[in-house]
Design a protein around this nucleic acid. Structure first.
Length: 764
DNA sequence: CACAGGTCTCTTTTT
DNA sequence: GAGACCTGTG
């Protein structure tokens, strides 16, 4: 252990902030700290709590603590934020108006609920999107705002007032269904602590020593929860790295770590700056990229690992070739015995990028595992079966009942469901209870007996559950309902088999759960299932290449890392480039930093000139993050490309290319050309240019060209007018390779980045 | 009520 | 390109 690690381990009393750079051994510090508390300071393990974000991190820490602490390790709480809060709520949530056997909604369930809200409030989902409202509600919950808080904070904004109404209705429905969404889990814990001081105090007294991992990713609700818990003894140790904060979109507030010393006066700060993971070149590259961000905690990572190998940069003509080449190279390394499959990870910005890799790997028979994407538990067939189980467990959850009442098909259609719902609303009962009374529902006619058959079935299973295992009952449900036959009937064979396999996997997960937990209950199983993520199940002893998003890769390390799709428009994403703020771009850069620092020995950045995105071909320049890495750290050449603007001459008539506008994108409005679509649909104007020509025009700007162009006659802060976007304020002017890049915040269209020569902005 | 076929929207990132 | 959503027909 180095000096700083040791210091952080033994500094046990009072608030402590450990700024732990990537690969600096923070888990080591946390686990040893727990051991030190128990063994050297005689702290009761029962009084110690360690909170992480993912189950995987919790599991890893748990194992390491178990290994180094002789006695009592099992009574230390090592859990995720969510499971910690669920455990507390299971015990006390009845004090704030819910039932203790609440169910947990995933994003899918939330979306269905919101759909029902829209229907009830008669909101046209063309005007307002469910996803938008849910995102807004989620942010509000992260900030601990109730519907009332949200409404009064946005009283002046018409559309936000509508969102407030949705929020209120959504929350009502959740409560009626006795359900919590992910954000409620944290938010209601805080609420409970505030509403019931005696509950809070009992936990304060229990958790005298609190440790929080990945502190930079906490949102306001999580921050508050931890703060409340630690308020009595203030023995709180948080570990994090502001440069690795990548969850702002989920409400994470980087200020929680940047302001720690202000919130906890007298806090001790220790920095871990020695990196034990990567080679010097990889680290230098990471440092070079991240140094472009402002407002960081000062920190300089160093390593004792000297190495000659540079960071590799490779460019390809298409995403397909990129996948081929990387797959071939991995197979070659494996053949030569340089690196095995399990040493390699492929990282990308968005899940959609995994497809080409997956196809190639299947084709070449290279073993791989895809992490993330569609979560196992969100697959349709799994959700269906789980909906049966949830109905058995918590009969008041309308959503689950409606999901399965006609799956597999039993001839109960929308009309019937609506009639039952109307009846339920009138009598103020749950949907399932209305089903039980189907004979009384007016206008059902023949459908009533079908509904009766359904409820009889559910009641039978409920009864069976008392004497049989969950596994047996689930198996029974699958057989009785003919679910497998249904799948085989409606899908093509390959898809159907996949789904049948998924169901088998679910069954074996149930079996595992029952074997591991002697006290197993259906509720317990459902809870476990609700809080797992894909990354949790990744083990490192299988021989396969891992493919995942950079977000999923946080906290992991691999000898060999490929970061694919290093293109402006992919990474950083086009949304960030076009409409994002500076902070958004900084978050993307932190993401690049996280990605680079996953690599121990060998790092390859790859670029594809063209790429299929959402069914259309894009041509993007090399990612700015690649350009931020000094040449001497890189090998491989940046692609030989010409500047798009080279041929543009203001005097002569615009080139053929500009005039024809064959691709439906107008370049003359001043935007940085971002993508060109050669879509399959025939366009009215026939293209007079080959793809090759277009390519050479559209490629990225070469690195390090002298800046030129005439300086615009407006400055930052001036108001300007654009022929299309109207008026706005100039936010930023940066000299580019040939022209000035101007950022303007338009009154009506928001922030845009454009080239001065094209934008023809007029000072007003 | 079920199903086939067409249209529209979408993408960052996830506990 | 996929999945959700809509619409018309039997």
């Amino acid at each position: 252990m180095n000096d700083q690690q040791y210091e952080a381990t033994v500094y046990t009393e009072g608030p402590l902030l450990v700024i732990a750079g990537a690969g600096s051994g923070k888990t080591r510090v946390l686990t040893h700290r727990i051991a030190y508390l128990i063994e050297e300071e005689g702290v009761n393990p029962y009084n110690i709590m360690a909170i992480t974000f993912t189950n995987k991190a919790a599991k890893e820490m748990r194992e390491r603590v178990d290994r180094i602490v002789g006695y009592g390790a099992e009574s230390v709480w090592v859990m995720t934020f969510h499971s910690t809060c669920v455990r507390i709520l299971r015990r006390y949530i009845d004090r704030v108006g819910y039932d203790n056997n609440f169910t947990i909604y995933d994003t899918d369930d939330s979306k269905s609920t919101m759909k029902a809200v829209f229907k009830k409030l008669q909101i046209d989902n063309k005007q307002l999107k469910e996803a938008t409202v849910l995102r807004e509600i989620s942010r509000a919950k992260d900030e601990l705002m109730s519907p009332d808080d949200y409404e009064s904070a946005n009283a002046a904004d018409f559309s936000k007032r509508r969102i407030a109404t949705c929020y209120r209705e959504y929350q009502d429905m959740l409560r009626k269904n006795n359900a919590l969404d992910f954000d409620d889990i944290i938010r209601l814990t805080v609420y409970l602590f505030k509403a019931c001081p005696e509950v809070l105090e009992s936990y304060q007294d229990r958790f005298k020593y609190i440790m929080v991992d990945e502190y930079q990713d906490t949102n306001t609700a999580q921050f508050t929860m931890v703060k409340l818990l630690a308020d009595k003894y203030k023995n709180i140790c948080v570990v994090g790295d502001d440069d690795q904060s990548i969850y702002k979109f989920r409400g994470a507030n980087i200020m929680n770590i940047l302001n720690f010393e202000n919130v906890y006066s007298g806090a001790k700060v220790i920095k871990l700056e020695q990196n034990y993971r990567s080679t010097q070149n990889i680290l230098d590259a990471a440092n070079a990229v991240i140094s472009n961000n402002k407002g960081r905690k000062n920190k300089a990572l160093w390593t004792a690992r000297k190495d000659e190998e540079r960071v590799h940069f490779r460019s390809f003509d298409s995403g397909k070739e990129e996948a081929e080449a990387i797959c071939d190279e991995i197979a070659r390394m494996n053949r030569k015995g340089e690196y095995g499959y399990k040493d390699v990870a492929i990282l990308y910005r968005t899940n959609a990028q995994s497809r080409e890799f997956e196809e190639r790997f299947v084709h070449d028979n290279v073993p791989y595992k895809l992490v993330g994407g569609v979560n196992f538990y969100s697959r349709k067939e799994i959700k269906d079966i789980l909906a049966y189980l949830k109905t058995l467990d918590n009969g008041v959850d309308d959503l689950q009942v409606k999901r399965i009442i006609n799956v597999p098909k039993r001839g109960i259609g929308d009309t019937t469901i609506n009639k039952i719902q109307v009846y339920a609303d009138e009598k103020d009962m749950s949907f399932y209870n209305a089903c039980l009374a189907a004979e009384e529902v007016p206008g059902l006619a023949r459908a009533a007996s079908k509904v009766k058959n359904f409820t009889d079935m559910i009641e039978t299973y409920k009864a069976r559950l008392a004497e049989h295992t969950i596994y047996d009952v689930t198996k029974q449900i699958i057989e009785d309902t003919g679910y497998i036959e249904e799948i085989r009937g409606e899908d093509d064979e390959i898809k159907a088999e996949e789904r049948v396999e998924n169901i088998d996997e679910l069954l074996s997960k149930i079996k595992d759960y029952e074997e591991e937990n002697p006290e197993s209950t259906l509720a317990g199983f459902l809870e476990e299932v609700a809080l797992v993520s894909d990354i949790d199940s990744v083990s490192d002893d299988e021989s396969r290449v891992l493919m995942m998003t950079i977000h999923s890769a946080k906290g992991l390390e691999f000898p060999v890392v490929y970061i694919s799709g290093m293109e402006d428009g992919v990474f950083p994403g086009y949304l960030t480039i076009n409409t994002g703020s500076d902070e958004d771009m900084e978050e993307e850069r932190r993401l690049a930093y996280v990605a680079i620092t996953r690599a121990k020995d060998r790092l390859t950045l790859s670029y594809a000139k063209s790429r299929m995105v959402r069914g259309e071909t894009q041509y993007n320049p090399v990612s700015r993050f690649v350009k931020e890495i000094p040449d001497e750290l890189l090998d491989g050449e940046l692609p030989k490309v010409r500047n798009f603007f080279d041929d543009y001459d203001e005097d002569s008539s615009p080139s053929r290319f500009m005039k024809e506008k064959p691709f439906g994108n107008s370049f003359d409005d001043g935007f940085i050309p971002r993508k060109v679509s050669f879509g399959s649909k025939p366009k009215t104007t026939k293209s007079v240019m080959t793809q090759q020509e277009a390519l050479s025009k559209l490629n990225a700007m070469p690195k390090g060209m002298p800046s030129g162009g005439t300086k615009p006659d407006y400055e930052v802060g001036d108001r300007v007018r654009h022929h299309k976007f109207g008026e706005g304020v100039v936010k930023d002017i940066t000299p580019g390779s040939k022209d000035y890049q101007v950022t303007v915040d338009f009154d009506e269209f928001g922030q845009k980045i454009m080239y001065a020569a094209f934008a023809k902005l007029q000072k007003v």
